[in-house]
Every structure is written in structure tokens, then in C-alpha cells.
């Protein structure tokens, strides 16, 4: 699936211009509010008309100002999940879910509704009116409604912004499952670096209506180390009791945490600044996790240095300052011991 965009749009004093082509399965549009992310979404979906340029999806022209082609939104087969669910208030959950499905050619119906309803855990809600749904349920119905229209590409415009922290991390596993299981290309719009890292592999960065750059999500996370710090994200399996604490398998390592996970696939955050590096194994320390690692590489942003560590079969990034790099003689290939407190991990979902 390739999306090729070269468009310009003037909206009052705001000018939007972008030229890019995307082929990654999970792409992000990243930028602060007012950077033109939503404008791009509206232009690609056909809800707004660009002043000039072309839009092509999988080789098919959706918009071309010189050839005067402007394919109507209902013919583009691009699904949109808005910031708020925007469900149809006069229909129940089932009618909402199948609205797009009923308008999709039988040949194009490649999603099995039952499977999707199961993945989104909506089975018990089908006959309910939408005024009796919680915020998270509404957003799941909105996602299901879009996926069932069997689009070639799904645009998500800040779909998690309206939800509180807890709901957000309840929804993310559903999102990940849907996009992994039904193999639909995703263009994910957000101003949240954390959401980007959970949902995308590659990002386009926008600022004031202009495309600033393009990089992998990992590069984006590393480049914003000074402003926000770097956060490691660790998928940990089911824990076992270990004294008062919880022990998790992390690849070939074992980690001890204060927090108990709830599922087989819990996601934890670990701030890179909370990892302390030792040159030699400290015999006794209050930190419960001591991992012997090999330095894979270093990257610097201003006066911070990110140290990429290979811990067994897993990778971890620790953030230190240049002086520490010199004193510990940290260089690629060197061996260090990383100490992490059991309470440094924060569970996301």
C-alpha cells in the first residue's frame, strides 16, 4: 500500500504544504496542535479539497488538480476514526458497526464481522443504544465501524486524546490487535510521543503546516531525549511472586518489579534516567535489578548521552551525561552493569 501525497492548501492565514510518499504499514503524523495534522487527514480523506497537487493511493489517483480529478470521500475507501467517536445517535451499536459494511461491495468485504466483534469485545453491546456506552466502548465501536467498511487505509485523528489515562491504555491493546490481525495500513495522527511509539514504526513530523522530517519512531523518541527524556518500553509476561515483589521474564533476563501485572502481555515504562551504570559489578546495592550488558552504541543530544545496551537478547537505553561516559570509558563493545530499582517501572497496560 503506497500513499503518495503532494498537496497545498491555504486556510485563511494558515498554509499547509506536504510532499511525501509512504509505504510503511503503521505510520504516524506527529506534531504539536496547529501543525496541520488534522488538515492533512481531511485532505487525504476527501473531506476538504486541496488547492493544488495530487493524492494517490495504491497507484489510484484520488485527487489531481491539473486533471480536475477529485474522488468523493465515499469512493476513496479510506476509513477515518475521529478524536471523538461521532457515532450515529439514532442507531444502536449493531447498526453503527454495520453502516459501512452494508455499503461495501461484497467482493471487497475481507473482514469477518464476528472475528472483529470478538477482538473488540463488543458482542454483549450489540443491541445497546449508543447513549448507554462508556467513552472507551464508544471509541471501540467507532473503530469497529471503520474497520468493517474494509478500507484500504485507516486514518486515526488523535483517537485517544479525549480519553482519560486509564481508558487510553485499555484501548491501545485493542488497537494493536485489530491492526495486527486484520492487516490494515494505518496513518496515526497524534501529538503524543508515547502513543506514537505504541502505534507506529515510522513518523512524519509536521510543524506549522510544513513537513519537517521523516524518521523511524525510535529515532523520533531518541531525538526528543533532552525535552522529554527517553522512555524504554518493555513487554513483560505473567509474573510470579518473589518475596514481596513480582518477578517477570524479559527475554533471557529476569526483572523484579514492585507492580503486579494483570495480563500475559503487560507493557511497562522505564525512564532511561532511572538506570544507573556501573563499571564493575557492585556487590551490594538497594536496586533489585542488576543486569550485565554490552554497550551497542551511543547517541548524543546536547549534553545528554543515550547508551544503547544489549541485555541478553533485549535492548535498553540508559541516559547519562558526557562526563560519566568518559569516567566509565563507555564505548561500543564495553561491558557495564545496569542497576534498576524495582519501583522504577510504571505499568501502562
Amino acid at each position: 500500500m503506497e500513499l503518495e501525497v503532494e498537496i497545498e492548501k491555504q486556510n485563511g492565514a494558515f498554509r499547509f504544504a506536504a510532499s511525501f510518499s509512504l509505504s510503511a504499514r503503521r505510520c504516524g503524523i506527529f506534531g504539536p496542535s496547529g501543525s496541520g495534522k488534522s488538515t492533512l487527514m481531511h485532505l487525504v480523506a476527501g473531506l476538504q479539497k486541496p488547492d493544488r497537487g495530487t493524492i494517490r493511493l495504491a497507484g489510484k489517483i484520488l485527487f489531481d488538480s491539473t486533471a480536475r480529478i477529485n474522488v468523493a470521500p465515499e469512493k476513496r475507501r479510506i476509513g477515518v476514526v475521529f478524536q471523538h467517536a461521532h457515532l450515529f445517535p439514532h442507531m444502536n451499536v449493531r447498526s453503527n458497526l454495520f453502516y459501512g459494511w452494508q455499503r461495501t461491495d461484497e467482493a471487497a468485504r475481507r473482514i469477518a464481522p464476528d472475528a472483529l466483534i470478538k477482538v473488540l469485545n463488543l458482542g454483549h453491546l450489540l443491541d445497546r443504544g449508543i447513549d448507554r456506552l462508556s467513552g472507551g466502548e464508544r471509541q471501540r465501536v467507532a473503530l469497529g465501524r471503520t474497520v468493517l467498511a474494509c478500507p484500504q487505509l485507516i486514518l486515526m485523528d488523535e483517537p485517544l486524546t479525549g480519553l482519560d489515562r486509564e481508558l487510553k491504555y485499555q484501548i491501545i491493546p485493542y488497537l494493536q490487535k485489530v491492526f495486527a490481525e486484520f492487516a490494515i495500513p494505518l496513518l496515526f495522527i497524534s501529538h503524543s510521543l508515547r502513543e506514537m511509539r505504541l502505534m507506529t514504526d515510522e513518523v512524519l513530523v509536521f510543524r506549522e503546516g510544513l513537513l519537517q522530517g521523516r524518521m523511524t519512531t525510535e529515532e523520533l523518541a531518541r531525538s526528543s531525549m533532552t525535552a522529554a527524556g527517553y522512555t524504554n518500553m518493555l513487554n513483560l509476561g505473567r509474573p510470579r511472586m518473589s518475596g514481596d515483589l513480582w518477578a517477570y521474564r524479559w527475554g533471557k533476563n529476569e526483572l523484579v518489579l514492585t507492580e503486579q501485572g494483570e495480563s500475559d502481555d503487560d507493557l511497562f515504562e522505564l525512564d532511561a534516567r532511572e538506570i544507573v551504570l556501573f563499571k564493575r559489578h557492585p556487590e551490594a546495592t538497594s536496586a533489585r535489578n542488576l543486569l550485565t550488558c554490552r554497550v551497542k552504541g551511543l547517541f548524543g543530544v546536547n549534553n545528554r548521552v543515550g547508551v544503547e545496551l544489549a541485555c541478553g537478547d533485549q535492548t535498553l537505553v540508559a541516559q547519562i551525561v558526557p562526563d560519566a561516559v568518559r569516567e566509565l570509558a563507555i564505548e561500543p563493545g564495553a561491558e557495564v552493569v545496569a542497576a534498576i530499582k524495582a519501583s522504577s517501572f510504571r505499568r501502562l497496560h
Partner: peptide, 16 residues
């Protein structure tokens, strides 16, 4: 009427 839900209908394949 929420105009976004009208836009949502269009992107779901409904004509004007």
C-alpha cells in the same frame, strides 16, 4: 446535528 458524524458517514461509503 454533529457535522463530524455526517463526515464519518461519507468516509464509511455513503454518498451525499
Amino acid at each position: 446535528i454533529d457535522t463530524n458524524s455526517l463526515q464519518a458517514a461519507r468516509t464509511l461509503g455513503a454518498s451525499w
